[in-house]
């Protein structure tokens, strides 16, 4: 798709639907992962923090999936899209479906995605679609707090004890490969960029990398080498972890179709 004026003015319904679902899925799946920490985090304060971040992300997901259902016009609600799609229909970034492992690992995952969301929402405020721009302005303010939390913990753990340093470095080494997807072309976010709906994914890289490197240096952590990786969530290619996550998240609707509170 070319970035001509015509396409900017008329991003297709289908493209707006897919872009909203892509962004909404990323927030939804990460919210679900963070929710798994409730009652299990190392301290009450961190338990509350992870749950509160999950709540913000769930709010983003609800907004985006409701909007997707609205523009699709087939009567699907946010709940239908969250609970009744198969794993192969999800387009979240593969990083967010990765299991929690330990607190240090979770902080690394959160930090990498927070730094990305900071750049994403900053740029998405200029979307040609007001519904994306409005959400971005709201979510950006919340993401700054998420980032303060996760970057603060990166430094405390990385520059902490021998054990905490080791765990965070291991988390970083195992998760780094998933960040290549943030900026990779050939998926819905690139189409959305061409239509003026959102930023070009590659354009977010420089600011993200500078930010991340600064925190890693302060945290005395070693930046892993860049590699391209086969998991490509935004093209519906997921790791095996997504199916397990959805089996739990969707259990109630799958078992009792149409059940309501």
């Amino acid at each position: 798709m070319s970035a001509s004026a015509a396409t900017v003015l008329s991003a297709s319904t289908d493209l707006r639907f897919r872009y909203a679902v892509h962004l909404g899925d990323t927030s939804l799946i990460l919210a679900q992962r963070l929710g798994e920490w409730v009652g299990h985090a190392p301290a009450l304060e961190e338990d509350l923090a992870l749950a509160n971040i999950a709540l913000d992300l769930l709010g983003q997901a609800r907004y985006l999936l409701s909007y997707a259902g609205e523009i699709e016009g087939k009567g699907r609600t946010e709940d239908d899209l969250a609970f009744l799609r198969d794993p192969s229909d999800f387009t979240n970034l593969a990083l967010v479906e990765q299991p929690n492992v330990d607190f240090g690992h979770t902080i690394v995952r959160q930090f990498l995605i927070d730094a990305w969301q900071l750049e994403l929402f900053e740029c998405l405020q200029g979307s040609s679609e007001p519904r994306f721009a409005e959400l971005a302005a709201k979510a950006l303010k919340e993401t700054r707090y998420h980032y303060r939390f996760s970057s603060g913990w990166m430094v405390r753990l990385g520059d902490g004890t021998e054990e905490s340093h080791k765990r965070v470095q291991e988390g970083l080494d195992s998760l780094w490969k998933f960040t290549s997807e943030f900026f990779a072309p050939g998926a819905v976010d690139e189409e959305a960029a061409a239509a003026g709906l959102g930023p070009d994914p590659a354009s977010l890289r420089a600011a993200w990398a500078a930010n991340v490197e600064q925190v890693l240096t302060e945290a005395t952590l070693k930046k892993p080498a860049d590699v391209s990786y086969r998991w490509f969530g935004k093209r519906n290619q997921h790791s095996e972890h997504l199916s397990h996550l959805l089996a739990e998240m969707q259990f109630m609707q799958r078992t009792y179709p149409g059940v309501q509170w």
Partner: peptide
């Protein structure tokens, strides 16, 4: 500051 988040966001 003890924690960035308390009983509500």
């Amino acid at each position: 500051k003890v924690s960035e988040f308390a009983s509500t966001p």
